[in-house]
């Protein structure tokens, strides 16, 4: 017994080292499997407040560009509104319950922390449960998609960026409707890879990629990027397509968070369908 205690005392440094190493490695492994980084994330009280303090100061530097983007977006939306009012004045209203039936609800949020230089990047938003944010909501900017909400606290939330090796978003070719998954190889912050597009699909450089609406996270037809390069994979059955994003992931100040009001219903249906088999 004494020998065991002596052994512990003699090797206490090494044992402490092993113990702490086990903790940190388990945290690392947890963070590498999707939706498991439950303990260490920046949406907690201390880091959330400190990061938003930092953003109070640094947020001023990009205001000119941010204003320009807002003006561009307003312009685009105005044009769409014009088309819409014209169309609705010409035709008969199809349904009066249109406003009640809108499945998507948008909220704005301020980005207080943004990574893009690592292989697993996250953003931190200054909106949380109090503002109605929930896990697995889609996040977009005025020009393209940003990611999916990961962890949510009272006042802050973290977003799994599309610049993350765990991220996979279902998208399609706007022209032909072929769909595939958008992933990131960890190299350039403005280029993502579109995989699982069959060889039969006709693609050319400059084709637009949009979201395909098969998931409950993003609505159909959001612009993502254009094809900048493509090649066949090793099996020569699928394309690996480089997609240049429309939005600049390195400069994101304000984002929209999309709530799909029918997500629960769809998920419930999907799980019951799965259970029957």
């Amino acid at each position: 017994m004494l020998q065991i205690i002596n052994f512990f005392i003699r090797n206490k440094n090494f044992l402490l080292f092993l113990f702490l190493l086990a903790i940190s490695l388990s945290l690392t492994i947890q963070s590498h499997s999707y939706h498991q980084s439950k303990f260490v994330h920046s949406a907690n009280f201390v880091s959330g407040n400190l990061l938003s303090l930092k953003h109070e100061i640094t947020g001023y530097f990009g205001l000119r560009k941010e204003n320009k983007l807002l003006a561009e977006e307003n312009n685009r939306l105005r044009n769409q509104l014009e088309l819409f009012t014209e169309a609705s004045s010409l035709s008969v209203r199809i349904s009066d319950s249109l406003t009640e039936d809108i499945p998507y609800y948008y909220r704005t949020a301020e980005v207080i922390n943004n990574n893009y230089s690592k292989t697993n990047n996250y953003l931190t938003l200054k909106s949380g449960r109090k503002q109605g944010i929930q896990s697995e909501m889609g996040v977009i900017s005025s020009q393209g998609i940003i990611g999916i909400v990961d962890q949510v606290s009272e006042n802050f939330s973290t977003v799994l960026s599309i610049l993350n090796s765990k991220s996979s978003i279902s998208v399609k070719l706007k022209k032909s409707g072929h769909f595939g998954s958008l992933v990131w190889d960890g190299k350039l912050p403005n280029t993502l890879q579109l995989i699982d597009i069959a060889r039969l699909a006709s693609i050319s450089i400059g084709d637009t990629i949009t979201t395909d609406g098969r998931s409950t996270i993003f609505p159909k037809g959001l612009p993502v990027g254009v094809i900048s390069n493509f090649k066949l994979d090793q099996g020569e059955n699928f394309y690996i397509i480089d997609v240049t994003l429309f939005n600049d992931m390195t400069k994101t100040e304000y984002v929209y968070i999309i709530e799909n009001k029918k997500a629960e219903e769809i998920k419930e249906l999907e799980t019951t369908t799965k259970n029957e088999y």
């Binding site: 702490l20 903790i23 940190s24 490695l25 690392t28 963070s31 201390v46 697993n120 931190t124």
Partner: peptide, 24 residues
């Protein structure tokens, strides 16, 4: 020293959403 180094690393991890890589 080991404990302090671990806490320094894990504090960095909290701010950069990186699991436990800095701590390790």
């Amino acid at each position: 020293f080991l404990l302090l180094s671990f806490f320094l690393g894990i504090s960095i991890d909290f701010f950069s959403d990186s699991g436990g890589i800095h701590a390790a």
